[in-house]
Write a protein that binds this DNA or RNA. Structure first.
Lengths: 358, 358
DNA sequence: TCAAGATGATAATACGGATTATCATCTTGA
DNA sequence: TCAAGATGATAATCCGTATTATCATCTTGA
């Protein structure tokens, strides 16, 4: 059987009806050349201002070409440029989940805000790789007919990123930057992440200063790098401060009860979204927060309407991460020497759930 | 002086340092051809399964080619593909304001949601035209070096769209669709809009049935098409229902006072975001809502609004508008016969501010 | 036996732009 | 007067793929 490796479908070859304007043809350098009475090569040279080397074009000729360009509104076809040249100033944005989720409290939104802001500043466009086929709820980066190479490279967003995809990006030498720290994948992965270890450690220290002697990390501490980073920071800081610590696998009633029974006085939630559930559990047990038990969310304090509690935690600098991701990307492309692995500091948030031990 | 018309700057031609993997060259059809001892054309033919017409390739030959493809992991370069074809399945998204505003209740968000959803379904990518220069707070569509022609066409978003830009889009035959109804611009403008007249009329009729005999439209009724549409629907329905009506230029205290003095019992707000201000004014005057005065918001609030009042009005089907915008766009591209000017119904929202006249 | 058809594959070209080698033509200076 | 250099512009080629026209070679039937 012959499989279609390309996976690409043309627009329907429907015969176009009698359109008013006729079939739109792009204005090409050939057209500009014809209009201004020069060759295509000349147009290209003028356009790219490549008059440095041995090439020279008379000022009047240049002007004629530029005039024709202005009149026609000519713009170089980025696809052609990409083929001949190497870059087209299009930066792909790949996400495993839809870029625009329906939830109002959108996780990706701030990242995109930063990306867009910087893209505008740098004069490049963002290509949302929406065409990547979705398989089992997640987009596939390298499916047949993958269009990821349309752009100069890409920014990878996602709570959890496929290891294989990263390896392939590295192996194929496709320039890319991950938003969020990633472990090596057959080579160092460029990223701009949040400094979870430092932020978590700072909060642990704060708890220690407030007199907490037994604290617990609530969560798996594995899976996405961000989870592992939190746990790592937690452990290191607790050990440094001489605080006893343990880990609770999930924010369920049984393990939480056990922890409290063992004298734990502060809970550090890997997943900030667990805060409401834990609060409800505490309330059900008659535990006052922070009087009897302190609560820290290791990430952005999520405050749904249902919760009146101002949970202590830290803020991930999402917008700035987006911005710097593009900076790193350009540094990669241009071969500039910069740190291509950056961890940005998080802003600590005091909140009202971390108090002294009674 | 030579001006750079293209606005395009190459990435710095900096010499890349000694990379570990070296510059990996893509595997091309030529490579496959060499490996399997055939011509590049044969590879392409096998790959695309174009063996229907006069072209024939022996099964064994096909197998050799397919084997080589499998061994090398060859993937067609989408860029070259686009060049050979006419379209690149990239759809530009142009907005006059930043696509990702910081406001939580983002006005554009639902539109983009629909666009992304449909783009994924149709297998095309969205190009956010972020490189368009901003001039006086608004993006310029046709600035020098505009990259709008970079895509197969574009979707235009924005509360208010520049007439000149639309005319140029029409004149140049660039396929495009406006999200939101637009007046003709040197030709019919394809759009997917909200049916403001119908929604507004429905609310007017409802007020009439509730006994209101004097009602007022609060707003300019001009500027964006959406304002004019609301006023038109308002006038027509009021006349039909035999209700006396007038217009108040702005949601300011003086004209509102005057209206009430003249016996107006229901206010229809062109700009839903004015609701809080009007509510505050009513409360200040001791007017009960809806006991003494009914209030209707003609649409969704465009600005984040915090209000305890559940204002009667209607919901703009933003997500669906985004979806159908892409449908219309493809219909244009493919020359399919469809209505390229669509008004989608809004969903009426009862709320608690429209009541019977006491 | 040989023209007509079938079979299998390729050369050539297009797509639009970037780049290099090359070619005219014009100045100079000796 | 004429070679050397300066000047201005272009032809040719490449990038990777799709497509069409064309070309060999082999069968077949009368």
């Amino acid at each position: 059987m012959i499989t279609r490796t390309s996976g690409y479908t043309h627009y329907e070859p429907v015969e176009k009806g009698p359109s008013v304007t006729g079939p739109r043809r792009r204005v090409t350098q050939r057209d500009i050349a014809r209009i201004s009475g020069v060759s295509q090569a000349t147009v290209s040279l003028v356009l790219n201002n490549r008059l440095d080397g041995g090439v020279r074009i008379a000022p009047e000729t240049q002007q004629r070409v530029l005039d024709a360009i202005r009149e026609t509104g000519y713009v170089a076809d980025p696809v052609a440029r990409r083929l001949a040249d190497q870059y087209n100033r299009i930066i792909g944005v790949f996400t495993y989940e839809p870029v625009f989720p329906s939830g109002a409290r959108d996780f990706f939104h701030p990242f995109l805000l930063g990306l867009e802001e910087q893209a505008e500043r740098l004069g490049c466009d963002l290509l949302l790789l929406t065409s990547a086929p979705v398989d089992g709820g997640r987009r596939r980066m390298f499916a047949d007919g993958s269009r990821i190479r349309l752009a100069d490279g890409c920014v990878v967003l996602g709570r959890e990123v496929d290891r294989g995809d990263l390896e392939r990006l590295v192996a194929e030498g496709i320039p890319f930057v991950s938003v969020g720290r990633r472990d090596d994948a057959g080579g160092p992965v460029p990223y701009v992440g949040a400094d979870y270890p430092a932020a978590t450690a700072a909060l642990v220290e704060r708890a220690a200063r407030l007199g907490h002697r037994r604290i617990a990390y609530v969560g798996s501490g594995e899976g996405p790098e961000s989870y592992a980073d939190r746990l790592r920071g937690f452990r290191a800081a607790a050990a440094d401060a001489g605080v006893e610590y343990g880990r609770i696998a999930a924010a369920a009633a049984a393990p939480l009860d056990a922890a409290v029974a063992e004298g734990v006085t502060a809970l550090f939630l890997e997943e900030p979204a667990d805060a409401p559930a834990v609060t409800a559990w505490a309330s059900g047990r008659g535990l006052g927060v922070p009087a009897d038990l302190s609560l820290v969310a290791l990430g952005d304090p999520t405050r749904p309407v249902s919760m009146d509690l101002d949970v202590a935690g830290f803020t991930i600098p999402r917008r700035e991460m987006g911005r710097q991701a593009l900076d790193v990307f350009f540094a990669l492309i241009e071969g500039a020497a910069t740190d291509t692995q950056r961890l940005l500091p998080c802003e600590l948030h005091d909140g009202a759930t971390l108090g002294p031990v009674q």
